[in-house]
């Protein structure tokens, strides 16, 4: 079997053209997941009544559902119920006006929240309780202790697992092709529909994902080094 470089190049171009969609599918869930995940992690660590337990249960439930299954469910609900919901809220929009990418973003965001919560909770567990107590003992409030003492220590600990999560979301984003969203993978396969160069399409998509991941890894290494300068010893 011959692999045609021309087709790979064509697929790369086509895939990159839809890179902004992949970027949306990764960035929005990462960003929202980080914020909401951090809040949930703190709620759980401080054992805040009701919401702490509730969030635990929800995350346990949600983590057990494969992303493809969740995506299919949301997509079905979206197609079947969108018009009814819009009518209920007296919104004058039809399903055709809405970009289906929001279904993908929604599914990935929920996944991201679960991943981020667990990573940040792990980081918080790693920080000695004495750091909190020392903060309280000199008269800092809980918020001040978090902001000045805990979070600066949490960042370097959490970067490796958080990077791992983002890489997971990047890979997860390719699954949204299953509900008809055109992102990098679907884009790279477009030329194949004319020339049957599917292998080249998949290779091109792999290259794009790989580059994206490598860039992200380098960024995380840089942040990690910057964040933990307090751990460097004098030697």
């Amino acid at each position: 079997m011959n692999i045609s470089w021309d087709y790979i190049l064509e697929s790369l171009k086509s895939g990159l053209q839809y890179f902004p969609n992949t970027l949306k599918l990764v960035m929005i869930p990462t960003f929202l997941g980080l914020i909401i995940g951090t809040i949930i992690a703190f709620v759980q660590t401080f054992k805040i009544p009701v919401i702490g337990k509730l969030s635990r249960v929800l995350i346990t439930l949600y983590r057990g559902i494969p992303i493809v299954v969740a995506l299919m469910i949301y997509n079905l609900l979206f197609t079947l119920k969108f018009e009814a919901v819009a009518r209920f809220f007296r919104l004058n929009i039809s399903i055709a006006d809405v970009d289906q990418i929001i279904v993908g973003i929604f599914a990935l965001t929920l996944m991201s929240i679960c991943l981020m919560t667990e990573s940040i909770r792990g980081g918080l567990i790693a920080i000695d309780n004495g750091q909190f107590e020392a903060g309280y003992s000199i008269g800092l409030t809980r918020m001040q202790t978090l902001r000045r003492i805990i979070i600066p220590q949490l960042i370097p600990i959490s970067i490796p697992p958080l990077t791992n999560n983002v890489i997971g979301i990047i890979k997860g984003s390719s699954i949204t092709m299953a509900i008809g969203i055109t992102e990098v993978l679907a884009g790279a396969l477009i030329p194949g529909s004319k020339s049957y160069s599917f292998l080249e399409g998949y290779i091109a998509a792999a290259v794009i994902y790989w580059m994206f991941t490598v860039i992200l890894e380098q960024l995380s290494k840089y942040l990690e080094l910057r964040g933990k300068n307090f751990k460097r010893s004098l030697v």
Partner: peptide
Amino acid sequence: NYNLFQNK
């Protein structure tokens, strides 16, 4: 065990 702020 001192509990100095590790980041300061």
